[in-house]
Design a protein around this nucleic acid. Structure first.
Length: 749
DNA sequence: ATGTACAAGATTTTT
DNA sequence: TCTTGTACAT
């Protein structure tokens, strides 16, 4: 949101009949025209949520209910905000100057910068990234004497973030739980205090501080309540409690709040999203209009039916019946393969064949459950020369050299930024090691000052060794000079000067590792990217809030991403690999959240399927290598949830043939092959061949069982062999009782 | 203060 | 398998 928000901008003129209404169906039009008062739009996948929200914006402007600067529209990603703005401006035929459009965080930060002093910050405060957060928690926890092994910093930070997601500042927390022996709350307090000392806010703070400001200064709250005549929210099912409170407060005066959401697509509960926010809407806003959108414009009937049947297995949903008038199309294709490499090969071949039939690569996506799954596809696609892009993968701003460079700029811009200080004080090497740093930390913590200030005090004494003292002094002098320069020269020039004078560029020039030239290239790119911003502050905010890949968006390429990042997107063809028990649904989600976890996983599967317009492919592998370990896997229970009428099974011969009809109970006779776990060299050999042609060796080949042997069965557990005849064993299982089992299904215990 | 060698641990999803 | 952290040597 680069625009300023000074004076209200004149109303946008539009000539009737409005084009934005022409392309809508009845329900959509109702949602658009019900502009006064609270509105909740419950909409299924592919029913045109964003289109409705945009049309609504256009409508508000065209009917002159508000100026753009009196409207706030909140989207889930910055990209969605950009798209909405473009669409809106096309609709109204002019720029929507002054419109507040962006993520919760992007909007909250604008408010916070203005009133930072209310929460003890200065307007140029730093926005922390996850790394910095974690480092701070580690420091605080260590000082508190918490055992890192028992209570990893990650877990403590998780607890802190959960509190923040729920809108709880340290003084509001009532349930300290037993995390870190009940010390988590104490750590939270110190963490927060330290953030204030170093003039920084983390992501959660952006909203939390907003709430605090509104609470402590009612006149400020009133100002924004007055300003925001219309509030629009996309993806409402994924708002957390803090966001909900923020919205409720701001909408208090005009109550023109319109939320669009789909409870079946709530996939962020791990980040604090509350489906309850949707359910509560009518209670909080009596007389709210509820509009349901159920006509799907995206997918073919087969895909829609398969997805609907899948999500119908979830209990506790509001329930929607999606329908479409589209032509039947192809069934969802289910494909079972031997292993992950085979899966990547098959998908690659399939994409090539689609491409030959005229499908554009940019209309093809591979959606995986977890980030690490993209690697297999990348390797394969590089190999076959297929153009692809990883969406949301390793990001430009997360590269080491970029983060270092940014740390220099942050430190120039915000002298108290400890995290930046720590990052660059000895990069390039200045002979400032752990000893010196420890002394700095010690003083900084005890005197409640920033590291930079502590450094300044320390060089005034003779506590440090002469070498360290001299070098640290030089560093501080440099910083002071650059800060002075910041007023005088343009920010791109400043960046260049800082990188050169600090010796950072020279450091990489002297580096003879193969990736050094690339890093220097990236640094150049960074300086070039800064040119698009008015000043250093604007650039730094952009970097903190918009952590996405610059460039490389163009071109005809296959998209590779997690299902989470595919939210809100659509493609002609979607591949959904890795539908295996443990991977999808993810085991950890199941272990930690039980039924709730399973339902969220199912919603995720639903989101994945409904991204497809024309074709959806679901695949699973019988063997997968995870952390370099071979594991045999079962087809996901979600596959069994897909109705046979709308799917087509196409498994490799000999691979758990009834997988499609197999319920997760796995009563049946299929067993994974433990052989591969014991003999990875065999697995590797198998992987190097065309697997269609290879019959896997029978499991347990050559293993003979005799009465009295202790054995293990995947389903029945441990037991003792009573009799063995041919391949059939009679086994007395410790838990499951007596069973007849084929010997290939048990292992020697 | 810096560099090396070896061991342990990790992998869910992101504004 | 790959990355990160720690202990020890330089």
């Amino acid at each position: 949101m680069p625009e300023t928000d000074s004076a209200p901008v004149a109303p946008v003129s539009a000539t009737p009949p409005p084009p934005y209404l022409a392309e809508l169906n009845d329900a959509q039009r109702r949602a658009v025209e019900a502009v006064d008062g609270p509105v909740l739009v419950l909409a299924g996948a592919g029913t045109g949520k964003t289109r409705v929200l945009t049309a609504r914006l256009a409508h508000i402007l065209a009917t002159r209910r508000a100026w753009p600067s009196q409207i706030v529209a909140v989207t889930f990603t910055n990209k969605a905000a950009l798209e909405m703005r473009e669409r809106l401006e096309r609709l109204i035929g002019q720029a929507a100057e002054g419109l507040w459009l962006g993520t919760f965080h992007a909007i909250a930060v604008r408010i916070l910068r203005r009133h930072a002093e209310v929460v003890g910050l200065r307007p140029n405060f730093t926005i922390l990234d996850t790394d910095d957060q974690l480092r701070l928690v580690k420091q605080v926890a260590a000082a508190e004497g918490v055992d890192e092994k028992r209570w990893p910093a990650r877990a403590i930070l998780g607890a802190i973030e959960r509190w923040k997601d729920r809108g709880l500042a340290p003084d509001k927390v009532t349930d300290p739980g037993n995390l870190a022996d009940g010390r988590a709350l104490k750590i939270y307090r110190q963490y927060q205090e330290r953030l204030q000392t170093v003039n920084a806010a983390d992501f959660g703070d952006l909203l939390l501080h907003n709430l605090t400001i509104f609470q402590m200064r009612p006149e400020i709250a009133a100002e924004y309540q007055e300003r925001f005549r219309y509030i629009l929210v996309d993806e409402y099912q994924d708002t957390n409690v803090a966001q909900y409170l923020w919205l409720r407060l701001l909408a208090q005066k005009y109550k023109n709040l319109c939320c669009v959401g789909d409870d079946d697509q709530s996939i962020y509960s791990w980040r604090g999203a509350e489906i309850g926010n949707i359910l509560r809407f009518e209670k909080d806003f009596p007389g709210a209009q509820i509009v349901r959108l159920e006509q799907n414009y995206r997918s073919t009937p087969h895909i829609l039916a398969a997805a609907s049947a899948l999500i119908a297995k979830n209990a506790g949903r509001l329930g929607k019946t999606l329908w479409t008038t589209a032509n039947e199309g192809e069934r969802v294709l289910l494909r079972g393969v031997w292993d992950g490499e085979e899966e990547a090969r098959w998908i690659g071949d399939e994409i090539e064949s689609l491409q030959r039939k005229g499908e554009r690569l940019s209309q093809v996506a591979i959606l995986v459950r977890a980030g690490f799954q993209t690697r297999e596809f990348e390797e394969r696609f590089i190999n076959m020369g297929l153009a692809y892009r990883v969406v949301g993968g390793p990001r430009f701003y997360e590269r080491q050299e970029i983060r270092d460079a940014l740390a220099y700029l942050r430190l120039v811009h915000q002298p108290a930024d400890d995290f930046a200080f720590e990052r660059v004080v000895n990069t390039p090497r200045r002979g400032i090691g752990t000893q010196t740093l420890q002394a700095l930390h010690h003083l900084a913590r005890s005197a409640r000052i920033s590291l930079g200030e502590a450094a300044a005090r320390l060089i005034a004494t003779d506590e440090l060794k002469p070498a360290a003292r001299k070098s640290l002094g030089g560093f501080l002098t440099d910083l002071a000079r650059w800060r002075g320069l910041a007023q005088a020269v343009p920010h791109t020039e400043l960046a260049q000067i800082v990188l050169d004078e600090s010796g950072y560029t020279a450091m990489w020039q002297a580096d003879k590792s193969p990736d050094a030239p690339g890093r220097l290239e990236n640094l150049k790119e960074l300086v070039a990217a800064m040119d698009e911003f008015e000043n250093l502050a604007g650039f730094l905010d952009h970097v903190s809030l918009v952590m996405e890949n610059a460039g490389q968006s163009g071109g005809d390429m296959v998209s590779l991403m997690t299902v989470h990042s595919a939210k809100g997107l659509e493609f002609d063809v979607v591949f959904l690999p890795g539908w295996e028990e443990g991977l999808f649904p993810n085991q950890r989600s199941l272990d930690e959240h039980g039924m709730k976890g399973l339902e969220e996983e199912r919603r995720l599967a639903y989101v994945g399927l409904t991204r497809a317009r024309q074709r959806a492919y679901v695949s699973y592998a019988a063997n997968r290598r995870i952390h370099g370990q071979w594991q045999t896997t079962l087809p996901s229970r979600f596959i069994a949830d897909l109705p046979q009428d709308h799917t087509e099974m196409n498994a490799e011969p000999g691979l758990h043939p009834r997988a499609a009809g197999l319920a997760p109970g796995l009563e049946e006779d299929w067993q994974p092959t433990p052989l591969l776990r014991r003999r990875p060299e065999l697995a590797r050999l198998l992987m190097q061949t065309r697997h269609q042609d290879v019959t896997p060796p029978p499991p347990n080949a050559g293993v003979k069982f005799a009465a009295g042997d202790r054995v293990f069965h995947r389903k029945f557990g441990l037991g003792t062999v009573r009799t063995a005849e041919g391949g059939k064993l009679s086994i007395a299982f410790d838990q499951a009782g007596d069973k007849m089992v084929m010997d290939s299904f048990v292992e020697k215990a």
